[in-house]
């Protein structure tokens, strides 16, 4: 049940262009331990700009 709710939360966030922050942290820890990762808010703003800055991909 918890897993299901978590997945639905993740789905809702990705629908509006916000991928998982935890996954980002895991990626940074694994591949770039030397670089400080963005904070949660920086990550949010970065993704917001990426989704909407170029117009955003959605259909009629």
């Amino acid at each position: 049940m918890r897993a299901l709710l978590e997945r639905m939360r993740e789905m809702a966030l990705l629908m509006v262009g916000q991928p998982s922050y935890d996954a980002y942290l895991r990626h940074m820890a694994q591949r770039h331990p030397d670089r400080p990762p963005m904070s949660r808010v920086e990550f949010f703003r970065n993704r917001e700009q990426a989704r909407y800055g170029g117009g955003g991909g959605r259909c009629c």
Partner: peptide, 27 residues
């Protein structure tokens, strides 16, 4: 190309929701 931002391996059910929300509109 994983970068945690644009290229992220995503659970297929989560991605299905993302893709559907992007294609379905007023049309």
């Amino acid at each position: 190309r994983a970068d945690g931002l644009d290229y992220v391996a995503t659970d297929r059910r989560v991605l299905f929701g993302h893709h559907f929300a992007a294609i379905a509109g007023a049309g």
